[in-house]
Structure formats: C-alpha cells, structure tokens
Design a protein around this nucleic acid. Structure first.
Length: 495
DNA sequence: TTAGGGTTAG
C-alpha cells in the first residue's frame, strides 16, 4: 500500500485501519497486510480484530475468523475479540471466550462486566464485580452506570459514595442519572460538590448532563450547568451549544433555546436541525420553515434529520400541501432519499389532516416494511378522527407489534372515543390473555427545582387532595368555555 | 483493548 511514495509499514497500518469507515476498506487493508507479511507484530492482527468489530455482525464474524487462525494471541487479542462480540450483543459467546482466556487483566474483567450491565443483568454484574480479583475506577463507574440506568439511584449512589477514587466520568454519570430521573435537587447538590472538589466540567460532562436534563425536563439543572459554563467564561463548543439549545427546547423554554442558537458564532448542521425540530414540535411550523430557509441560505446542506424536522413542522402546523410538496421533491432537490422515518412523518401529516385513506395507501405503497411506529402513527390518526373501521384494519394487520402494549391501548382509546365499549373490553381482555401490560404514562412538572410525576390512579403525592380539587375546578371551567363534546373528551383525557 | 457525550417519525 503506497500513498505519495510513502509505503505503509506495521506501525502505520493500525492508523490506516482506524481511519476506515466501512468493512470493505478494512478487508482491503487486511489483504495488503497479508501480502506484505506484517503479521509478525502482534499488534497488527489485534488492530484488525478491533477495527473489524466496528462494523456490525459481519465485521465481528471476520474478526472471529482471523482470531481463530492466529498463532500467537496475547491478552489484548482476547480482549478485543470479547469486546467485539459484546458490541454486537453476543453476551453468551463473549462470556464463553472470557472463560476460556488463558490470562485476564483488568480490561478483560471490565469488558465482561460492562457486557452484563448493558444487558441490564445487574445481579450477574454485581456478583462479577464482587468477585473480581481487582477493581479500578472503570469497574466502579460501570456499576454506578448500571444501577443508574436501571433507575436504582439508591444503589448507584451507595456505590458512588464508596468509590475509593473519583474522576469526572463517575461524577458525570451520577449527576446525569439524577437529572435524567428528575431528581433536580440531588443533581444540583452533587454538581456543587463536584465543583467544590476541584473538578471542572468538560464538554463530555456538560453534554451528558444536558442530555439527561432534556430527557426529564429538568430545567433547573440545565440552567445550573449553563450558569456554571458562563461563570467560568468557557467558550462553548458547537456540540455544547447544540446540547444547550436542545435542553432548553425540550424543557419547554423555546425562547432561551432561540437565544442560545442566535448567540452561536459557528453552527453545524446539527445546530440547525435541533432548532428547526424544536420549533416544529412546539407547533411553530412557520418559524421552523423559516429556520430551514435560513440554513440553506447560509450554505448548509439539509440531511435526513433536517427533513424529519421540516415534515414534522408541516404536520404540526397543518401545512399539508407544503409537506407533500417537500416530501416529493426532497430527493430531486437535495439528494435525500426518503427513509422510513420520512414516510412516518408523511403518514402523520396526512393522518392528522384527516386524509386517512391517503395515509393508508402510502403505508401500502412505501418501499419499506411498515414497523410498529408506522402502524402506531396510523392508529393515532384513526383515534383523532374516530375512524373505528380503519383502526380495526390496522389491528388485524399481522405486522402490528403485538408485544407493544402502547398499540393496544391506542386501539382501546379509539374504540372508547367511538363509544364502542365492547371493542374496548375485547382489546383489554386480549391484552390480559397474552400478558401484555401497559406501562402507565406519566406527566411531570417542575416546581422549585423538584420534578413532580403523576400517573393514573397515583395518590401518593402529599398534596394529592388540593391538586385534584384544582383539576376538578379546571374541568368545570373547561366545560363552560369549549364545546360540550370537546370538553367531555378533554376531561376524560385528564383522568 | 475497559466507564459518561448534541438532532431523528406515534
């Protein structure tokens, strides 16, 4: 392999491999390496295993083939192979290989530990963690992460507090964990403590915490992080600004999102996509389309995500014809081939607009197998327009995801809205008989840095009585100001 | 070779 007269050697190959962006390139370099006999250095095949594994199941298969024929293997070869299997979710195969390893180092243990944690198998992970011959900061962080993702913040915190040494990463994990679950007070207190201990937020930490805030709507934590950035007069990277815009928009503060966006000296396509989508989901279709125009004017090429935003904007603003026009010209004008996500937007657009037959036809004519999201979108549109017959057609379709309880409850609500109580009980019985349970939907609101969550039949809130008195009063007021039929629907939706 | 990271259709 030669480039500008410079011949690659065993030292340059790992770098070349790292730069590969597809399986074919790795294969090409592999062939060259074999021709040139560079396999005498063990780090060459090790780098190959590692880089093959980046490319999905096929890549891992290729890595495994190479691993099997390798004469010499060191602990890194084994670790890379175990890591590759874990990357494609082959936990059992990875464990088998781990058990066969002639020697293991801390990386081997941490990799397999992470494998269990990623699969949510925390009991097995904890057992492994307790029996490890040695633990380091990565092992501890992995466990904190595992419990945090499993919403067991007490266990996550107990382990975090026990950690012999802490770095910025575990601090970020625990703060993000609290923020993601809406425990703003804990997240803020830990943020303060971390800064007091002399840790400074870096890009990674900021983005993680802001993403968690966006997830739960923890505006207070997001503002805290933003303040801390401004106090330290750190110049925000584009990624951090994008995360800020996203956080503010997801927390309902569109004006602050807009102000951060406008204050950015440099933007990338993600910045535009975030802003566009934020306007779209808040129902500001016209503003979203204006952002789209501006991004083109400033020389940015719209990508597939951009068009999800544009179509979503048209859908939420009732701009049906604009949406259709955009959908049918996006490939010709911008070279973006409509993917299933764009068809999803179109079905939503047509469905919300009451053009259910067209939506249905599109589902049948699109070049993709409809997935649960597509059917769900169609069902939602049927509910909106009380189209029971069409909804039944959707339900009978074999591709409807019967393991997704959400689809059943949408179907039940369609029947309920149409006054078909037999239909409702049939669906409910079916759910019971096949054992699907609908996870209860929750609403949350942040007051004084605390997120309060409410679910159906949940009476655990300390101010339950006064809250529901207020809800009843609102229901009465609604009945006075809107059409009785709409009021009944709204009040039903409230309970 | 191991732990955290921005946008994506209901």
């Amino acid at each position: 392999m030669q480039w500008n007269g410079i011949v690659a050697n065993s030292l340059t190959y790992p770098f070349l491999l790292k730069a590969c962006h597809c399986l074919k390139m790795v294969e090409m370099i592999h062939t060259q390496m074999e021709k040139n006999g560079f396999f005498s250095d063990i780090f060459v095949p090790n780098a190959l295993i590692d880089n093959y594994s980046k490319f999905g199941a096929l890549g891992v298969k290729a890595a495994l083939r190479l691993f099997m024929v390798m004469g010499d293997r060191d602990v890194v070869s084994w670790n890379s192979m175990v890591g590759g299997l874990l990357r494609v979710g082959e936990l059992r195969e990875a464990r088998k290989l781990f058990d066969e390893m002639p020697e293991r180092n801390i990386v081997s243990w941490n990799s397999i530990l992470n494998g269990y944690v990623k699969e949510g198998k925390l009991e097995e992970a904890f057992e492994l963690f307790e029996n490890m011959p040695q633990r380091n900061i990565v092992s501890w962080s992995t466990m904190v992460m595992g419990y945090s993702k499993a919403c067991d913040m007490d266990m996550a915190r107990a382990l975090f507090d026990k950690m012999p040494i802490k770095t910025l990463v575990p601090w970020t994990i625990i703060i993000s964990g609290y923020a993601e679950k809406g425990f703003a007070k804990e997240a803020i207190a830990l943020c303060d403590q971390m800064l007091q201990d002399g840790f400074e937020l870096n890009d990674g930490a900021i983005i993680s915490i802001l993403a968690a805030c966006a997830e739960s709507g923890s505006l207070a934590v997001g503002v805290k992080v933003h303040d801390s950035i401004e106090r330290h007069k750190v110049r925000c990277s584009i990624a951090v600004c994008n995360a800020l815009v996203n956080m503010y928009a997801k927390c309902g503060s569109l004006d602050r999102a807009w102000s951060v966006f406008n204050g950015m000296s440099k933007r990338d396509v993600v910045s535009w996509n975030v802003m566009l989508h934020s306007f779209a989901v808040h129902g500001h279709g016209k503003e979203a389309l204006h952002v789209f125009k501006r991004m083109k004017k400033e020389g940015f090429n719209p990508d597939r995500v951009t068009f999800v935003g544009v179509l979503c904007a048209c859908s939420h603003a009732g701009l049906i014809d604009e949406g259709i026009q955009c959908f049918y010209t996006m490939e010709k004008d911008y070279g973006v081939v409509p993917g299933i996500e764009h068809y999803g937007c179109m079905i939503d657009l047509l469905g919300r607009g009451g053009r259910l037959k067209e939506a249905f036809m599109l589902v049948h004519s699109m070049p993709f197998e409809p997935n649960a999201i597509i059917w769900g979108t169609l069902l939602g549109a049927c509910r909106l327009h009380g189209a029971t017959e069409l909804a039944e057609k959707v339900r009978d379709h074999h591709k409807l995801d019967h393991s997704d309880p959400g689809n059943y409850s949408v179907l039940a609500s369609i029947f309920a809205a149409a006054g078909d109580w037999d239909g409702v009980s049939t669906v409910r019985l079916r759910m019971k008989s096949i054992g699907v349970q609908k996870p209860s939907g929750a609403s949350s609101i942040e007051i004084d840095n605390e997120v309060h969550e409410f679910t159906v039949f949940d009476r655990s809130h300390p101010n339950f009585d006064s809250i529901y008195q207020m809800v009843h009063r609102l229901a009465q007021d609604l009945k006075r100001v809107v059409h009785p039929k709409d009021a009944t629907l709204l009040v039903e939706a409230m309970f």
